[in-house]
Amino acid sequence: MWQYQKKLEYPVNIKNPNPKMAKAILSQLGGPDGELSASLRYLNQRFVMPYAEVKGLLTDIGTEELAHVEIISAIIYQLTRNISPEEIKASGFDAYFVDHTTGIYPASSAGVPFTSAYFQCKGDVITDLHEDMAAEQKARTTYDNILRLADDPDVRDPIKFLREREIVHYQRFGEALRITQDNLNAKNFYACNPAFDPNCTRRRTR
């Protein structure tokens, strides 16, 4: 089970509202490579994982991603404080505003609502870990693009932190893949799926 901690993983203190920037950053909440899809991807995939290291890693990264959902939400919240209807119209935030006011709703920057079609749970260790590594790189690219658009240091600072975490997660998933392959037939990693087929792995699994 989970227990909430009343603190952000990394501080967010944005002095100047910027609804246009909020709309761009929204994609990292509810977009195709956002933090919400990251968290749900890992927390769903972990159940059939045969190795303790991978079960632990997916649990812990999936949990950290929930903290990233909160950081992104805090950024959007602070970027949309005390804005006038004129600013909303001029910034292009009006399309979001009309449905959600300044509430935090998971959607992409283009307004597509969050969907679980953004992630997979294939039930195959190698397949799922490759998806996870790709997802971390896609999120890293999205943060790079946000950094290309953002000039406010108050916004760039937490975004840079989140970008770095994508790289660390990618690294750990790569190690999880290596641990998995070390337990499989070196001549053919795909001979069987240790998340489903019995007796196909060198290490005894549950």
Binding site: F47, A52, K55
Partner: peptide
């Protein structure tokens, strides 16, 4: 919880069984 791991030789946090097993 991970912070309760208290073994100098091994990171016992990941040890089986996990709650869904």
């Amino acid at each position: 919880t991970p912070n309760q791991s208290n073994d100098d030789n091994h990171w016992s946090w990941i040890d089986d069984p996990w709650p869904w097993e």
